[in-house]
């Protein structure tokens, strides 16, 4: 049975709901937060600078947000996303999916990946989706501090200048970075609307 929305002749979307505290941990068994190495003992590796992004997710009180499910999505070192439309792109890296998912028990994470490339006027970035108890899915996109392409990036341009800082992954040492995600309150991370946009 379907429910039609007479005004615009579309079906009413199913309401999003919280994932709750009990998302089955075993559903994450095949998941990886390591995009930098190839699975199954294959010697090949994705092209590009191998990096580590250490991070954490905090709530309105500054406490770590335990039990959140994180999903990462990014382009490869040449700025190409592995989507069905790009399947014949010569710059697809056969050893890189750009997709990672991880359930963090305590709110900390370490993403191992390669530094994404610039794609047209898009600065290098990593899309992050957070699923958590108490909220609907929220999404954001993270950038690399001091990257020269940031100034022209069309997404960063819609974020008020004083908030852009909060989307910046900061370099801590060679090949290593840090980002703090604040879900609510002071210094809240800017999130984006992927339903109305």
């Amino acid at each position: 049975m379907t429910h039609s929305n007479k005004k615009i002749n579309r079906l009413i979307p199913t309401n999003e709901d919280t994932i709750g505290p009990y998302y089955p941990i075993s559903f994450c068994d095949g998941d990886s937060i390591d995009m930098a190495t190839t699975k199954n003992g294959i010697i090949f590796k994705p092209e590009g600078e191998q990096i580590k992004v250490n991070g954490c997710v905090r709530d309105i009180n500054g406490n770590l947000a335990n039990g959140v499910l994180l999903e990462f999505w990014q382009a490869n070192a040449k700025g190409v996303y592995r989507t069905p439309d790009n399947i014949n792109d010569p710059d697809i890296d056969p050893w890189f999916t750009g997709y990672g998912r991880y359930r963090t028990m305590d709110g900390n994470f370490t993403l191992k990946t390669i530094k994404p490339g610039r794609c047209g006027d898009r600065a290098p970035n990593i899309t992050l989706t957070i699923f958590s108890d108490g909220i609907m899915r929220v999404v954001t996109q993270l950038f690399f501090e001091n990257d020269p392409a940031n100034d022209q990036d069309p997404l960063l341009q819609v974020v008020p200048e004083d908030l852009r800082e909060r989307l910046m992954i900061k370099k801590t040492k060679e090949n290593e970075y840090f980002i703090e995600i604040i879900m609510a309150g002071e210094n809240e991370t800017p999130f984006f609307d992927d339903l109305l946009s």
């Binding site: 406490n63 996109q141 609510a184």
Partner: peptide, 19 residues
């Protein structure tokens, strides 16, 4: 504790597919 207090930002067309 976890609901963002600020309004979500709309995604410009040039960045939409990347999400």
């Amino acid at each position: 504790e976890r609901t963002p207090r600020n309004r979500l930002h709309l995604i410009p067309d040039a960045a939409r597919a990347s999400f």
